[in-house]
Computed example of a mutant assay.
Amino acid sequence: MKFLGLIAAGLLGAVTLAPASASAAPVAAGSATLLVAGVVAAPQAVVVRERTVVRRGPGYRNDRRNRWSTRRVCTNRWRGNRKIRTCRQVRYRR
Rank of each mutant, 00 (worst) to 15 (best):
C74H: 10
A25T: 03
P26N: 12
A18L: 11
I7Y: 12
V15M: 10
G5S: 06
N62R: 13
R85P: 02
D63K: 00
L35I: 11
E50G: 14
R56P: 00
A37G: 13
A20F: 06
P26S: 11
A28D: 09
L34Q: 08
A14T: 08
G57C: 08
N66R: 13
R88S: 13
N76S: 14
R94S: 06
C87T: 08
S69C: 11
V48Y: 04
R88M: 07
R94C: 00
R61K: 02
F3D: 15
M1V: 05
A32D: 13
V53P: 00
I7D: 03
S31K: 08
P26R: 08
V90L: 06
R65E: 00
G38C: 10
L12G: 14
K2R: 11
V54K: 09
G80M: 03
T75F: 04
S21E: 07
A32I: 00
T70K: 14
N66P: 01
V46T: 09
I7Q: 08
Q44A: 10
G30V: 00
V36E: 06
R51K: 07
R85E: 13
I7R: 12
R79F: 07
G10L: 13
R56E: 11
S21M: 06
A45D: 06
N62W: 02
V15S: 15
N62M: 02
G38H: 01
V15A: 15
L11V: 11
V15Y: 14
R51E: 13
V27L: 05
G5T: 09
L17A: 10
F3S: 09
P58Q: 01
V39Y: 09
S31D: 08
P19I: 03
Q89N: 09
N81E: 14
Q89K: 07
G38L: 15
V46R: 04
W78K: 12
F3A: 11
L34D: 04
A9T: 15
G38P: 00
R85S: 12
N76R: 14
V15G: 04
G13K: 06
W68P: 02
R56T: 10
A24F: 08
A8P: 05
R88H: 15
P58N: 01
V90I: 12
G13Y: 14
A8T: 15
M1H: 04
A28F: 08
P19C: 12
L4F: 07
K83N: 13
T86K: 10
A32E: 01
P43I: 03
V48G: 03
R79G: 01
R71N: 03
G30R: 05
F3G: 13
S31T: 07
V46Q: 06
T86G: 04
L35Q: 07
Q44L: 12
F3V: 14
I84A: 07
